[in-house]
Design a protein around this nucleic acid. Sequence first.
DNA 1: CAAAATGATACTAATCTGGTATCATTATAA
DNA 2: TTATAATGATACCAGATTAGTATCATTTTG
Lengths: 142, 142
Amino acid sequence: MKLITRDTDYAIRALCFIAKCEKEIVPVSELNRNLRIPGPFLRKILQILNKKRLLRSYKGKGGGFMLALAPNKIFLADLIEIFQGSLKLNECIFKKRICPDRKTCKLKKRIDNIQKQVISELKDITLASLLDEVRTYRAKGA
Amino acid sequence: MKLITRDTDYAIRALCFIAKCEKEIVPVSELNRNLRIPGPFLRKILQILNKKRLLRSYKGKGGGFMLALAPNKIFLADLIEIFQGSLKLNECIFKKRICPDRKTCKLKKRIDNIQKQVISELKDITLASLLDEVRTYRAKGA
DNA sequence: CAAAATGATACTAATCTGGTATCATTATAA
DNA sequence: TTATAATGATACCAGATTAGTATCATTTTG
């Protein structure tokens, strides 16, 4: 059971790098030089972050990506939701037709509670709070 | 992101049914008649529970499965671990060679904390506490 | 000995995860 | 104005995991 999958993790590292970079607008090529993330996969991840309005993108020469939000407005809970889908830990596998008691199902309720706790914890973790903590493997020359 | 996968869920329902059954020893055929779980798959699940010593099995005519432990000694955390593997939410995707700071990585630490909470919650949920709550779809005649 | 049960095991289908490849479009700088 | 450096869109692919099936062997007992 994984709380954070590879794409989410890559997204965190890429966002940290962009946040720390002197340049405001950072092209993927620069991230490729500094992070150990497969190039085309990283592009895909950044495109998603762009569509989800966490990054802003600029096309053409001199273009790249910049943060669309302040680092303290970017939450781990959102990243996980973007790449791993809903944070519902708890979809009952049985259809309503089969399991009519889902509203009162205690198992469901108890897992709901765990879920609420996890989400609130994840909402506390901002990009800002990770900036000095998550390694981004900046190369010497960069 | 799923906290409980299908086999774990089936296991919960099967264990509930066995716990509530008048018969102490319950054959899979009876579970098949009462639970909406694909037959061969359920057999496989029960065999695993048997190997893990949560059920005891009896072969031959009149055989079947019975609980090996009292319902208040069967914990959701154990079922999840059996069917979904270790509860570690938090394996860093980078090798030590690449990411030498994992001991101090704040992201890792924070997720570790969430993980500890989730596990302790899951350890509180016993089969006994679910017995009257989880629907097992007993057929009218059964 | 037949029937009813589990044990063991191998196979398969569908989905998810991680990643690649390609071509189109856009913007800038020389 | 054109080459170039960038992103956008999309389709594809391989491996792992999840969910489920099928079959034959073994055991027990009536």
